[in-house]
Design a protein around this nucleic acid. Sequence first.
DNA 1: CGAAAATTTGACGACTCTCAAGTCGAGTGG
DNA 2: CCACTCGACTTGAGAGTCGTCAAATTTTCG
Lengths: 263, 263
Amino acid sequence: MIDGVWNASELKAYPNTGRFLSGRTRHEMTDAQKRVLEDAIEETATFKSSRRILERGEVYDRSTILIDGFVMRSMDGPERRHGLSFHVPGDFVDLHCFALKRLDHNIDTVGPVTLGYAPHRRLQRIMAEHPDVARILWFATLIDAAIHREWVMKLEQLTVPRRIAHIFAENWYRLRLVGLGDDDGYDTPLTQGNLAEMVGATTIHVNRALKQLREQGIARFSRGRIDISDARRLAEYGTFQPDYLYGSDAYLSNDSDDEAADD
Amino acid sequence: MIDGVWNASELKAYPNTGRFLSGRTRHEMTDAQKRVLEDAIEETATFKSSRRILERGEVYDRSTILIDGFVMRSMDGPERRHGLSFHVPGDFVDLHCFALKRLDHNIDTVGPVTLGYAPHRRLQRIMAEHPDVARILWFATLIDAAIHREWVMKLEQLTVPRRIAHIFAENWYRLRLVGLGDDDGYDTPLTQGNLAEMVGATTIHVNRALKQLREQGIARFSRGRIDISDARRLAEYGTFQPDYLYGSDAYLSNDSDDEAADD
DNA sequence: CGAAAATTTGACGACTCTCAAGTCGAGTGG
DNA sequence: CCACTCGACTTGAGAGTCGTCAAATTTTCG
């Protein structure tokens, strides 16, 4: 496991929010702040299979943090669903619906997930009584915006195979920030269809693109697992540079040299 | 001019921030809150020609509000510049760099602009002393994120001519929210090259797309001006639905019926 | 085991890019 | 006032990326 990024003891002390901002500014948070946040979670829920948990246009009185599993932000087009971003454990997936009321997109689970719910009245109290924590929450929503911007750019810039490589690299990096993922890839319930929704292509074209990535030795996607043999090559092919993720550590950079840390 | 959206007297009372959140939640703001915000602006600056005013990777100690003119958020690719979003007067273009420090993208002016600067120490005070205003600022950054999400979807969903139509419709709507733009179009210093950067296409292809829009009577783009004869048609062609902009009024909807209000 | 979902492949056409060339318009110096 | 220049705009031809239609194979799961 990589030092300086993920601290496993956090999950024991804060079972619902222990991964929040892990690998970013979590180490700057005080225990009191972490406690305030953990106490904002009123209850948790687990879903076994893929489903829509939040719907565009609806108003909710609580926000959702992803504790375990994967979710995808999406919007429905006239013919298919479009993916906006993937989320990994520790992400507050709809914190913005606290300030924004009406949700402007859907949240769909991908595979089994565990969620935590923070009622807006508790967030309201945090805003009033803990401006330092409020700023942290704001920061978290701004990272989301930064991820959106990066993806806008990549959609404008990259072909479909390269977009897929970028997704693989970004997800891998984000998983490792929160203590998940291996040194040579990661497990994920993503289907080729999910990838297609995310990169803005058809499933058929994604399938061909994956074949190409496989043949070129850049990444190997098989149901439930993504294997990456050459991290640097993947990052280069997908032009992935993780600065926009605001990780606190350069450890997870493209440099495969940096992967040398054993255990 | 459209009732219930833009209130011209705001600019007299608050010359620098009078358009901030106009047409959205500004009417819910108290005079005290508006004053707090106006007082956050330390100085203003005017630039005649297009230039980069903020650079990715840099750290700034103040945030920028667009008082007059157009700017574009951008990121530099290996071969060309890519547009992330356009901004109209009243937009706080880099409020996020207050909480995020390092900027993850550039801000480039398009044509002549006037900017206002809010030092971060003043924003820091607002966070601590005026949580209600802090929440408003947060809200403003969330609208940006919503606009990004919409654009991600449109990039995945639409062909280049339709993307252009969407941009035209969105900009028009946003301009009218802040009291600018006409009933049949709007003035803008945008070039075809700027549009190309924004929709992720080459200038050449954008040129052909504009020709098509012109021939189909959807929109007429000539240097410095965009003419729109059939608002509903433009919105339909670009699949523009303004809900994600969180306007306080349905007035500016696609329905050309709603355009009937004279003076 | 059978149904449903996910994956894979082939052929053809549409959208968009690159390369190449040429036109138009505003500002500048003679 | 005209020639010149530079950026913006326009057009054509050929090539690459990606979508659609159609069908077959494999995997998942009740």
